[in-house]
């Protein structure tokens, strides 16, 4: 910890001491000292949009996983997403302001309970989005940092691999991989998608690292004999955290959209699995006759993607006090 502080002092203005920022921010806490983690947490919990996003995301996750259960575990909702039945009242939603009724989101054309179907779709879309987002961030950050720092042949090699992913449009690569992996289940699909979505972040991180490695604090660290790996992990990457976090939230949100788009085109989640995207593609023509089949999955995608983005925004503000209100 002490070394990190010395380091921040050396680099001077670009990354001010976290404590300096807080003293301006909150004078009454000036005499107490906080760890980096505490500071980030405090700033995050002051961000109302992020808190609302977090609440919505937790709520949706809980709702999706407890209502119809996961695998062998049963949920509290008494219908499942495969049983067909008689269509009551044209399959209209029975949900009111204070009660759910028999079919809160209505029924599809074969009488299946649409609430259970949407919940199942939400589960699958959530699992895929988070797997893809986290995996692709890890891959992209590592590759970008190594390429930016070591340069030379490592950089050329890694950037050629990145170029390869960039010139084959994401959707094309993902569609072909999805076509191949689609039958093998959702985790195969998620890994395949992570394998093609890391390149944007790798380029961004490389750009940042290229610029950071010319700064004095890196030279200083090199001069006292710090190892390359430590310089990357402790000195360079923490300075790119804002970029990485903004990109990660966009990655998770776009993973949801990518997966739903693929499912919409027929190259993603394959039946009998349901994703929010395949629900929309199945019922997109129903907009005039049965609008609820069209509205609910779309609104759930929106809600998830929106809340993830707001959480990311809050995290960025929390990690980066330079962009605070006084900045």
């Amino acid at each position: 910890m002490s070394e990190e502080r010395r380091d921040s002092a050396m680099q001077g203005s670009p990354e001010p001491l976290p404590h300096a920022g807080v003293e301006i921010d909150e004078p009454k806490f000036a005499d107490k000292s906080y760890s980096q983690g505490q500071l980030v947490r405090r700033r995050f919990f002051r961000h109302k949009g992020a808190l609302a996003g977090l609440a919505v995301l937790i709520l949706i996750t809980l709702l999706a996983f407890t209502s119809i259960g996961i695998g062998p575990l049963p949920g509290w909702w008494d219908k499942d997403f495969t049983t067909t039945g008689s269509v009551i009242n044209g399959g209209r939603p029975t949900m009111g302001w204070f009660y759910l009724g028999e079919h809160p989101f209505g029924q599809d054309t074969t009488g299946r309970d649409y609430f259970a179907m949407v919940m199942r779709g939400t589960q699958i879309s959530l699992v895929i989005a988070f797997t893809v987002g986290i995996l692709s961030t890890i891959i992209g950050t590592l590759i970008g940092a190594i390429a930016g720092y070591y340069r030379g042949w490592t950089e050329s090699l890694l950037m050629r691999v990145t170029d390869l992913f960039i010139i084959i449009p994401l959707l094309v690569f993902a569609a072909v991989l999805g076509q191949i992996a689609g039958g093998a289940g959702i985790f195969a699909l998620a890994v395949a998608l992570a394998f093609v979505t890391w390149t944007g972040l790798a380029r961004l991180v490389r750009g940042e690292v290229l610029s950071l490695r010319e700064r004095e604090f890196v030279s200083a660290a090199q001069a006292i004999g710090t190892g390359s790996w430590r310089i990357i992990m402790r000195h360079i990457l923490p300075n790119t955290i804002g970029v990485i976090i903004v990109a990660t939230t966009f990655a998770i949100a776009s993973a949801i959209l990518l997966e739903t788009s693929l499912s919409f085109l027929g190259f993603g989640v394959q039946p009998p699995d349901i994703s929010l995207g395949s629900l929309i593609s199945d019922y997109q023509t129903a907009f005039t006759s049965r609008p609820w089949l069209f509205w609910f999955p779309g609104l759930f995608i929106l809600a998830i993607a929106l809340s993830v983005n707001f959480i990311g925004d809050g995290l960025r503000d929390a990690f980066d006090p330079r962009q605070g209100k006084d900045g």
Binding site: F250, A253, L257, T260, S261, F264, G277, I280, S281, Q284, F287, F294, P297, G298, I301, L302, I304, A305, L306, N309, F310, D313
Partner: peptide, 14 residues
């Protein structure tokens, strides 16, 4: 911008 970014294209298209 968050809203637009979170919109599924095909859904918004309809």
């Amino acid at each position: 911008t968050f809203l637009f970014f979170s919109l599924p294209v095909f859904w918004a298209a309809v």
